[in-house]
Amino acid sequence: MNNGVNFNESWLTEENFNLPAIKKRAGELGKRRSVKKSYQAAWLFRAVTCIDLTTLSGDDTRSNVQRLCHKAVRPVRDDIVRYFGMQTKGIKVGAVCVYPNRVAECKEILKSLNADTSIKIASVATGFPAGQTPLSCRLEEIRRAVADGATEIDIVINRTYALNGEWEKVFEEVKEMKIACGNAHMKTILATGELGSMTNIYKASMTCMMAGADFIKTSTGKESVNAILPVALVMVRAIRHYYQKTGIKVGFKPAGGIRTAKDSLTWLSLMKEELGDEWVNNEMFRLGASSLLGDIERQLFHCAYGRYAAAHELALA
């Protein structure tokens, strides 16, 4: 848990960012590391446990939320889990992630599956995705979601303040949100696709961590550019610098556009390379995704049987 520190403006401006160089490194991440065979299978299971299995749609109802929760508890077909001898590991996704109005039924469904303690319920809040509502409403939204059973809150930061360079105001708001979260973990969504530059992404990351973010998260999934590796590099570097300054470890959640098993391996390897082994688990790393799990399960099927599964052979999420 990150209790934050006082706002320190100089921490925002200490680093420079060169986008072409960042892109080059980002492009190599997936090429300098590769995992094959048993390693690939093990890493894919790990990726499964880091997923925030997400549905954030206007047409979400109990039926698809229920399907999501069931899949969260049994993300990979039993025969595949047994094939790899992973049955004792209790492979589940990290969390389900929904709108505040769906939190209560998530809680109820997961409880019915005896998984309400092992799977976290994450709720987006604070006027997600745009955050353009009064602060009092945004704070109230957090409190209601927590009251309904959310153990993690994904807030969005105020991009108006961010783009105007009013970082201390961003800090103050996030700090209030942290208080509203109480014991729930707070993930701060930077909406990086709307911040305009790597410099701003770093400033937003640092501001949120100083304000007490337990995770920093790339995107709502609703921006035109979501989780991409160059952005991630800047954010994990911010995490590293914050850790070096305070000794506090903050988690990272890329979200939006992560769809393939191979992508998930690259993201895990990014965490391992840039932050170390302590960041390669669901306490410190989450993948916000909806369709990713299907591809991972398909790949695990191939690891197990050497054949590609038909889509209809795997359970829908």
């Binding site: 995992v35 048993s38 390693y39 790990r46 094939y83 790899f84 001898g85 895990l268």
Partner: peptide, 17 residues
């Protein structure tokens, strides 16, 4: 071999590729 996957899952180590 199954044990191996379990172990790698815990260690998150790299293997030969």
């Amino acid at each position: 071999a199954a044990n191996l996957v379990e172990r790698i899952f815990d260690e998150m180590s790299y293997g030969p590729a």
